Simulated scan of single mutants.
Amino acid sequence: MLKDKICVVTGGAQGIGRCIVETFANQDAKMVYACDMNTSDMTDLESQFANVRAIELNVCDRSSIVHFVEQVKTEFGRIDVLVNNAGITRDNLIEKMTEEEWDLVADVNLKGVFNMTQAVAPLMMDNGKGSIITMSSIVGTDGNIGQSNYAATKGGVIAMTKGWSKEFARKGAEVRANCIAPGFIETPMTVDLPEKVLDYMKGKTALKRMGKPLDIAEGALFLASDRSAFITGQTLKIDGGLVI
Rank of each mutant, 00 (worst) to 15 (best):
L2E: 02
L2F: 09
K3E: 15
K3Y: 12
K3I: 13
V8R: 01
V9E: 00
V9M: 04
G11E: 04
G11C: 06
A13S: 12
I16Y: 04
C19E: 14
T23V: 09
D28N: 15
D28S: 14
A29S: 14
V32H: 00
Y33I: 08
A34S: 14
A34F: 04
M37E: 10
M37I: 15
M37R: 10
N38V: 13
N51Q: 09
V52R: 01
V52T: 05
I55S: 05
E56V: 03
L57Y: 03
S63E: 15
S64Q: 08
H67F: 11
H67K: 14
F68K: 00
E70F: 07
Q71P: 04
Q71F: 08
E75Q: 14
G77F: 11
R78P: 05
I79T: 03
L82F: 05
L82H: 01
N84H: 11
R90F: 09
R90E: 14
K96V: 04
T98Q: 07
E99R: 13
E101S: 15
W102F: 11
V105L: 07
V108F: 06
V108S: 06
L110F: 15
N115L: 10
N115I: 09
A121L: 08
M124E: 01
N127H: 13
K129F: 11
G130P: 02
S131G: 01
S137C: 07
D142E: 14
D142P: 00
N144E: 11
N144W: 11
Q147E: 13
Y150Q: 04
A152D: 06
K154A: 01
V157T: 03
M160N: 04
R170C: 10
K171Q: 14
A173I: 05
E174Y: 03
R176I: 01
R176K: 13
N178R: 09
C179W: 02
C179N: 12
I180C: 04
I180D: 01
F184L: 10
F184Q: 08
I185H: 03
E186Q: 14
E186A: 12
E186S: 12
E186M: 13
P188C: 08
D192H: 14
E195G: 05
E195N: 09
M201H: 11
K202V: 05
G203Y: 12
L207N: 11
K208W: 07
M210T: 03
P213F: 05
P213R: 03
L214S: 11
A217Y: 00
F222S: 02
A224Q: 00
A229Y: 10
G233W: 06
L236W: 11
